[in-house]
Write a protein that binds this DNA or RNA. Structure first.
Lengths: 148, 148
DNA sequence: TATTGTTATACTCTATAACTATA
DNA sequence: TATAGTTATAGAGTATAACAATA
């Protein structure tokens, strides 16, 4: 946009999102690494935080990942004491996962890390622009059929 | 934002970008797959298109990937006839990569795919909002030290 | 000795498929 | 027979490290 001869591909939404996504993810991953979790763990906790205790199948569906992946994530979160796994008495095949108090604290710390990263990313943006950006990305997320 | 009790993590820029990025990338990858390329190939062509013929080291630096990765990408683009590799007579260690006419056509097709995806993603957005979103993401990309 | 490109190898992430137990 | 969870395996993508040619 600065250069009239700039390659138009870099001026597409798709390109910018495709480039910024991994970059932001990597920085977020680095920020929560000291907490012992990775972005996918945080995503799982966020889903649990949003609703009632869920089965691993439900988690997998909402997160758009395969159920076998949830196993490992839940294992590690359980080791950290962030979630509890209890068998559903009504259907003993199911595990009902829920956040513990420690898990809520951990999630809060991850949220703080995300907020700090947001502040860095939008350092050159006004408050108004920042709100607009967040809102428009929210629209896109819904459009794409995301739980966000 | 719709729900007052919504998990605040999903209301961060970091989270939304981290989720939307891979999703958009995957859709873009599907769109250019029939053309025989993947997003990274397109990225390489975009860099070449933006400037003068570049060495593989330069490409790697601009793309924020390791030089050994450029080797394979360039190999495949050369097989497609999209780029040319010529030894730099001034420094015979270097290869100078440049887009061919076929490469420019291929890149144009990828741009069209990106534009079509943009239209899908922003279907529920007004023209004004779409422009704003694109501009703000551009600011973020610069802030993050990206070539875009 | 330093640098470019290359090759060989390993690591991370995620998916697919096969298996166990419950239903 | 179907489903929840698990385990084992495989694939994609990318990085690290060793190497050859050139400077």
């Amino acid at each position: 946009m600065d250069d009239v001869n700039a390659n138009a591909l870099t001026d597409t939404l798709s390109f910018r999102l495709g480039v910024l996504g991994p970059l932001v993810s990597a920085r977020f991953a680095g920020a929560v690494e000291p907490l012992g979790v990775k972005p996918k763990h945080v995503g799982l906790m966020a889903v649990l935080s949003a609703g009632a205790p869920a089965s691993q199948q439900e988690l997998a569906r909402v997160m758009s990942v395969v159920p076998s992946l949830v196993v490992g994530l839940a294992d590690q979160l359980e080791e950290l004491g962030a979630i509890e796994r209890v068998r559903d008495p009504a259907d003993r095949r199911r595990h009902r996962l829920s956040l513990t108090d420690a898990g809520r604290e951990l999630l809060a710390a991850c949220l703080a890390a995300a907020a700090a990263l947001d502040a860095e990313l939008t350092a050159s943006l006004g408050v108004r622009d920042r709100e607009v950006l967040l809102r428009l990305l929210g629209v896109l997320a819904r459009e794409a059929g995301l739980p966000a």
